[in-house]
Each structure stands twice: as C-alpha cells, then as structure tokens.
Design a protein around this nucleic acid. Structure first.
Lengths: 151, 151
DNA sequence: AAAATATGCTTTGAACGTCAAACTATTTGA
DNA sequence: TCAAATAGTTTGACGTTCAAAGCATATTTT
C-alpha cells in the first residue's frame, strides 16, 4: 500500500511537470511565441463565450485584481484580449478575447483534449470509469482541504 | 466518449490548480513563510540524500543553470541550502540541504503523500490498480510527446 | 608546456508574475 | 448631497525566467 502511494505520487508530480513543460514549449514553437504559459491560462480563464469581469477572472485564476490588470495590459498590447466598459456600471470592465485570442484558445484546448484522448483511447469503458473515480476522489479531497484553509 | 474526455480534462486542470494553491497557502501558514512554491520545488529537486550538481538540478527542474544559481543564492541566504565545492573538479558545485532544508523537505513530502493516501484509501485494490494504469498511460503519452519536442 | 577549447557556474539586463497599498472613477446608501 | 463602498488601475518591491557575457578550472591540441 505504501509503495502504491509513492508510485501514484511520483506519476502525478511527473505528469504535472510534463504538462507544464510541453505546454510552454508547444507555445514557443507555434505562431504564438509572444505568449507565456501564465498568459495562456489567463486567456483560458477569460474564455470563448460570455464576457467576464476583471474581478471574476482574477478570482478564477486565484490572483489579485492588480496582477490581472497588468497581465491584461500586456495581452491587449499583443492583440489577444480586449476590454469593454460595461454600459450598465461604468466601473466594470468586461474582458473578452479578440479573434486572435479565440484562435489561440482553440489551439490550446485541442492540446488538452488530445492529451486526455490519447490516454483514454487505450482503456475500455470500465477502466476509464475507474480513472474518473480516482480523479474525482482526489479532487474532492483537495476541495475539502482548500475549504479548510483561510483565504 | 467526447463527454468523458471533457470531464477528465476538467478534473485534471482543477486538480493542478488546487494542488498548487494548497501547497502555496500551506507554506505561507507554516513556519516556512519565507519559501515560495518554486523554491519548494527546488528544495525537492535537490533532495534529501545524495548531493547533486547545479547542472543536474537545473535539468531536473527544466530551468537554466543561471536561473537556478539566482534561486540558490536566495535559498542559501535563507538557510535552506548549502553549496559544497567539489574537491575533484573545482568548477563543480554540489548542492545539498541544510538541517532546516531537510525538515522542510519532509513536511512537504508528507503533504504529498497524505494527499494521495486520502484518495487511494477510498478505493479497493483493483480500483487503485486501474487508477495507476490511467496515470501510467497519461505519463507515457506525455514522455513520448516531450521526446518529440526540441530542447 | 603553452595555447586553444570546453565545461561548470555566476552575474547581469530585460521582461513577466506577484502582492500590498495608494489612487481614480463610479455607484450606492444614509 | 455626500460619505462609504465597489471596480479597476498604478506603483514599488521582490521573485522567476532566459540569453548572453564573464570567470575559473579542466581538457585537448599543437
């Protein structure tokens, strides 16, 4: 049992590092060299469809609003994100992706989906079910733990 | 099938973010407030036992040697890491943890192990086996992908 | 052995990521 | 109305990162 824990732990850590590294390098090789992995995640959090306010996106990313403002300044300059002042409340800024931003979003999303697809394709229905169960357990534990921490 | 892929993908992303956030906050709450999550991973890469050279650790972390040198400067100042010049080859620096560094290493390791333990405890032998298989598949895919990328 | 080359590490400059605190503009409530 | 609250921006300080230049030591070539 202890051995199993070690093994799972090592796979998880290794998977974490690999995904981050591959995402980073794939970006640097693509037509989107001017986007860092953090910026990519900001683009992901802004999302394709509805517009989200600065506060909402910052919360989703777990960073302060100030940090996001700086990052959005860069992403606007680079042409991936646009700001839209709310007509209803002039204090509010809605963030949205530009055409180029949406293209990058889709490329990144495909990378993620391919990665998972490749894993799942080699499993039968029942096995992928159990994998899901394991991830769900892990996720539930983490959410519980997170809830116990102060903001 | 497509739905399953989305689900697994979303769990993975969520787990990633949660682990990083929890690690960060747990550190900030502990007696090790002066250590960032990146520094924690550097300490982890230096490891408890054998001494490793700067180049080896940098490679393991996937960062340049220059970056690591800067980070190690800080960790030495804070008392977690020590440098030992190799007697055999005076150019080489062996990195090692101080007593305090080793204490932190153990605390962090326990956090990781507890996290996995909690997940696995709720599964029977066969289920944890399949979880392992899923992680192994994912890991194999990522290593293969990584191998296709240029350095 | 001396000179050239290679290796291991450090330093530096530039850009991004992060927070806290001070600030601006706008809205809400008393 | 005007004080307080809210949404976002700016700024200063420090960490993280890379590339490029530099330093010390080792190895290879002549």
């Amino acid at each position: 049992m202890d051995q199993r824990i070690n093994e799972v732990n090592e796979y998880l850590v290794s998977i974490f590092n690999d995904v981050l590294m591959i995402e980073e390098r794939t970006l640097q090789m693509s037509q989107f060299k001017d986007v860092s992995i953090k910026e990519m995640h900001t683009i992901d959090a802004i999302g394709m469809y509805q517009e989200h306010t600065t506060s909402e996106v910052a919360k989703k990313l777990g960073i302060t609003v100030g940090t996001l403002t700086v990052s959005v300044n860069n992403l606007v300059r680079k042409g991936y994100v646009k700001r839209v002042r709310s007509e209803i409340d002039r204090r509010v800024v809605q963030l949205a992706l530009t055409k180029r931003g949406r293209l990058l979003y889709r490329v990144h999303d495909k990378f993620h989906r391919d990665m998972v697809k490749e894993t799942i394709n080699e499993m039968d229905e029942k096995e992928s079910e159990v994998l899901m169960l394991g991830l769900k357990n892990l996720h539930r534990y983490l959410e519980r733990t997170k809830g116990q921490l102060p903001d």
